[in-house]
Write a protein that binds this DNA or RNA. Sequence first.
DNA 1: ACGGCTAGTCGTACCGTGTACCAACAACGT
DNA 2: ACGTTGTTGGTACACGGTACGACTAGCCGT
Lengths: 249, 249
Amino acid sequence: MASVENSGLIWTRPEPGTRRPKFTRDQIAATALAIADSEGFAAVSMRRIAGELGAGTMTLYYYVRTKDELVALMDDAIMAEVLIPADEFPSHWYDALTAVATRTWDVLIRHPWALHSLRNAPAGPNAARHFEQSLAAIADTGLDAPDKFALLAWVDDYVHGNAMRSAEIRSAGEPAMDEQTIEEAIRFGETLMATGEFPQTLALFDGADPRDAFPRLIGELTERERFLHGLSVLLDGVAHRLHLDLPPR
Amino acid sequence: MASVENSGLIWTRPEPGTRRPKFTRDQIAATALAIADSEGFAAVSMRRIAGELGAGTMTLYYYVRTKDELVALMDDAIMAEVLIPADEFPSHWYDALTAVATRTWDVLIRHPWALHSLRNAPAGPNAARHFEQSLAAIADTGLDAPDKFALLAWVDDYVHGNAMRSAEIRSAGEPAMDEQTIEEAIRFGETLMATGEFPQTLALFDGADPRDAFPRLIGELTERERFLHGLSVLLDGVAHRLHLDLPPR
DNA sequence: ACGGCTAGTCGTACCGTGTACCAACAACGT
DNA sequence: ACGTTGTTGGTACACGGTACGACTAGCCGT
């Protein structure tokens, strides 16, 4: 017995298949993803997925050892969306890195629950492919390994940070907050401002209704444009610091 | 009845006090924070906090309406740590913003669970104070309101993103992963590399043992130094884009 | 065709969570 | 001393992940 110990990693453990199982891991992951996208990650429970699939809850545990493994599958599916088709890959490092970052951002915004819920998911094959693409993007910079690594880290930090905070800001409007509570929150804000402790904040709002202040502060720009703007500022700093050339025009 | 409807916000609802209650909200929040710091946010349950405090579980619900409110208190306590004492506040925008960002980063690293667990917490008084300090930091730039707002957003994005990813990377080593599983993960990585699909990644590792690769890629720098490095790159880009002057020397 | 092995399915049960409900207690004004 | 009401906490419920083991059904060897 125990000749072929079950692997500890889901990636190396073959999925069921010899005797026509009812499902595949991909199917299960896709179902979980659909639930998360439409009702949030909290709605993704083993019972719920099984119900959606018309299966008994415990059946899922034949495909997956724990819920964490299911989450790892979800993460891998998400990372697949991040990959850029080879023929869309720009040649100049600046454009290529922008493309990779933007595509990552798009995916994170499309699945706003992902950043928090997949945090502990171990990197899968598609995560590796994404990293490879990131390296390919900056291959023509001539940087050494540590500089490349640092550059990718800076960009990833900004992309993830921006996506996370964008999702937060967007969801801050929607949830429980009824009209009543919003009114009250504004009143609380006014109480704070009245203490005189917040001259800068007061000046920033400039007497406008707090509900109008936010649109005024972000200008006409969309969330995505603001992301791209910040990214270009960061890349400018990078190019200057690492003595890289900017793309023509 | 119902003349003074209980406020929907914990900030405006007075805490118990007329008849010497056993606890205070601060006490409860502090206990919750201690548990989260030593055993992670998942260990923070109402039963657990109550147990720690020698109280019945439901007693907590006299101080707090839901667990979310408790989390809001935790968030406010954390934001208090972020505030910079007035006499430590640098005068030049570059130094002041760096100080605010670094202090924020320090706190987020000290409480690695905070970024994810306090995500939905509504802003409290100390969050407002932090925002005020951020604005004060860049008051001398002469930027208009939208530019100030954008600048703070870029920096916050980077700070939060870096803190989040630093915490992830650090925790990726510790958890369940026994020696056996680590060995297996490395073998899986080698399998992937062997497909020929990852030339850039392979070149980056340069044949070194993956366990040694990471230290080699980040150089001698500490986590904190890497954060500061990236921050300075970003601020350089910002200064260039917004035509701000850098601090002397 | 027929056992028998075993891949695959799933009901039951256990513990842990947040919290609604309500009974009990204790500090204060009278 | 009494009633009011601020404060405490026990019990119960729905929901979560998953251990255990009984069941069903597809395939192989005969």
